[in-house]
Every structure is written in C-alpha cells, then in structure tokens.
Design a protein around this nucleic acid. Structure first.
Lengths: 109, 109
DNA sequence: TCGTATTTCTTCTACAATGTATATTCGATC
DNA sequence: GATCGAATATACATTGTAGAAGAAATACGA
C-alpha cells in the first residue's frame, strides 16, 4: 500500500494490547479480542498480525518466564512502541473525523 | 476471509456516503474522504471499494441526469442498503467496544 | 526415572479479501 | 476533435484468516 495505514484487525489488536497492559500475550490477546468483538478469532490470525506489526516496529515484545503450571511455556508479551502509539492515535483521529455528524449505532453497548 | 468484516476503507467510504446524503457520487466521495482523513485517495481506490460493496449488496446505486456543464456526464449516486446500514452499525459497535477503557487521542479535533 | 501423554503457547505456511495506483474508456461541452 | 468531468478496467501490494506443525513445560504410568 505504500502508505502506512492500519487495518481493522491491526487497530483492534493494538487497542486490546493497550487494554491488557502487562499480560498482553498471544492467547490473552486473542481471548480479549474475541470478547470485545463478539466473534471468534483464531490464534493464527492474531499472531500473524502481531508479527507484522512488530516488523513495522509498531509493537515490541519480550519473553517472560515459564510459569510452573502444566504447559506453562514462556509467553511472549507485547506492547506498543512510541511509533505504534502515534500510528494508533492517528487512526483513531481519522476515525472520529469520519463519524462527525453521523447518527450511528449508539455507543452505549 | 469467509466472515463478513468491513475493512478500514470500506467503513470510511460508507460513512462518507451517509455524510453526503444525496450527492454521494464517486468524485464527491473521494474528496470528502480525503478531507476527513487528511490524506489523498485516488479515484481508482474509491471506485474499487464502491464496486465491491455494491457486489456485497451493502450499497446500491442509480445513475443521475447529465448536467449541462462541460464534461457533465451522468453521475452514479450511491447509498447504503438496509444490510449495509446493519453491517456498518455492527462494525461501529465492535469498534466502540474496543475503545472502552482506553485513553486514546482526544476526539476534540 | 524413563519416556510419552497432555497442555499451553508460538511459529509456519498458504490462500482469500482489501487497499491502492495507473491507465483506459465514456459522454458531454467548447 | 480538443478538453473536461466522471466512470470502468486492470494489476499488484498489503491485510485478514485458518489450519497445521513445532516447542517447552508438567503429569503420570510402567
């Protein structure tokens, strides 16, 4: 696309990461995303998006410690970079600009 | 994608059509879109999106009368179908759900 | 205590849908 | 027929989505 726009899922994933704060790793992100959008998302879809956003340096990640529970493999935690935060803010602003003057579905749930 | 989600541009175009009411034809849509998103969009990009949304029956269109001005060819006017309105509302709801609890860029400006 | 299930999580791969740009065609006035 | 406003066609890049495979950790029976 040349230009750096964020897709629907990309924006959604970034927002979910903000919402989760620490604790934003693959599975949690997928679950929270599914909850908020009221539809199922596969892990593959989420990880692909995380990878791409990381490649674009809008996200960064670090490996945590393994947890002492069954299958408690080390998790990879994500957070927005400064650039990522900026990109998301810009997308959100454009979005609001688009909604101006329209009577769309209520924001109340 | 299987599932029927709306892309960023698709949603933007639909909102602009709502904003323009009557008078929502290709060039006007492109201009209003560029204005609200503060970035240039080519006509090709817009028409492609209009075509695809029409194919999905989220939009419908009709040809207007030619205007008596130079190059005043008949314009094709677009509007949302009931299904389109529903799809947009759903997208908007999901979006708001995602924004809950986040302190994102101000809506002012 | 081996070794193999089982669980949780991540990576890989392939393909469908959207985003975007440029060029071409159409129809109308000058 | 030059030129202008508008629409259509075509091609390719980026995103969206799924499903399968791979890794790392604990559980448990022989």
């Amino acid at each position: 696309m040349g230009r750096n726009t964020l897709g629907t899922l990309e924006q959604a994933v970034m927002m979910v990461i903000l919402a989760l704060g620490d604790g934003a790793y693959g599975v949690a992100i997928r679950d929270e995303l599914s909850r908020r959008t009221r539809r199922e998302h596969t892990l593959g879809a989420v990880y692909t998006t995380l990878d791409r956003l990381t490649a674009k340096e809008l996200l960064e990640s670090h490996l945590g410690e393994p947890t002492p529970t069954r299958g408690g493999r080390a998790k990879r935690y994500f957070k927005l970079t400064g650039e990522g935060r900026q990109a998301l803010d810009h997308a959100v602003n454009s979005r609001h600009e688009l909604e101006v003057g329209l009577d769309l579905a209520g924001k109340g749930a």
